[in-house]
């Protein structure tokens, strides 16, 4: 029978400094939250911009944003992460790579993971935003223009506010995906939740306890995001649109 030892979390971790194994897990949780949050901001901003470009009447912007989406959706996340961490600093222009490589090692891991997850998720958000804008009737755009708005103003005041409200549900599932995907960053050594879970197994040999704790924390994070997004959805609901009452 497996020798359950939940008290292992309260034992002082190897390597001195007085931290317990529970502290390790919490450090990991904080890292997962931090990297997810930062990538989410990048993904949302960049994804929105690219999503607008995807619907904008300009061949150049359309081509640019389409290429972005295709590249970032057709390469596995793990490979992208290795490209950001190992390859990008070697090929980056303007001495950017050399500068990056002199940062503190942990900061390098964080920045590479954040950019990778941000742009990966951004490509998905691009498509959501595009779908959101395209789902609005053509009349909305025409009405905006007829009122004397310029095209950017029409986007800003007419199309985007509606589109974003429509795509809140798919966005929230992208946000959950982002947190789950952040576990991939453990492969380059970012000390997030999954990484700490494996460390714990190495140091304590209590595989079940550590995996259960880590898995439960991921599930809890997901639930938290879903609850928060549901609240946002309620606040942002447009009266008379999408049935008002939801599901």
């Amino acid at each position: 029978m497996h020798n359950w030892r939940w008290e292992v979390f309260l034992e002082p971790a190897q390597g001195g400094s007085g931290a317990t194994y529970l502290d390790w897990v919490l450090v990991g949780l904080r890292m997962t939250a931090a990297v997810s949050l930062c990538s989410w901001v990048i993904a949302l901003l960049w994804g929105s911009l690219m999503g607008i470009f995807r619907t904008y009447p300009s061949k150049l912007l359309y081509g640019l944003s389409t290429a972005y989406v295709e590249v970032f959706r057709n390469i596995p996340l793990l490979v992208q992460l290795f490209l950001w961490y190992f390859v990008a600093p070697e090929v980056a222009p303007l001495g950017l790579g050399a500068w990056f490589k002199q940062l503190h090692p942990n900061l390098q891991l964080f920045v590479a993971s954040m950019l990778c997850l941000g742009f990966f998720t951004g490509a998905r958000i691009t498509e959501q935003v595009r779908a959101g804008i395209e789902s609005l009737s053509r009349g909305q755009k025409a009405a905006g223009l007829a009122m004397g708005f310029t095209l950017p103003q029409t986007y800003r005041h007419v199309l985007l506010p509606m589109a974003f409200r429509i795509i809140i549900p798919p966005l929230s599932s992208e946000c959950v995906n982002l947190v789950k995907n952040s576990a991939v960053a453990s492969t380059i050594g970012l000390m997030e939740l999954a990484y700490q879970g494996r460390q714990l197994v190495d140091y304590t040999a209590q595989s079940y306890e550590s995996f259960i704790a880590v898995t439960a924390l991921y599930v809890a994070l997901n639930l938290l995001i879903l609850l928060f997004m549901r609240w946002v959805e309620k606040k942002a609901r447009v009266p008379g649109f999408m049935g008002g009452g939801g599901r």
């Binding site: 190992f86 600093p89 070697e90 050399a98 490589k101 090692p105 390098q108």
Partner: peptide, 8 residues
């Protein structure tokens, strides 16, 4: 070694 060779 990659870490070393690339100057990290």
């Amino acid at each position: 070694f990659l870490t070393l060779e690339s100057g990290r």
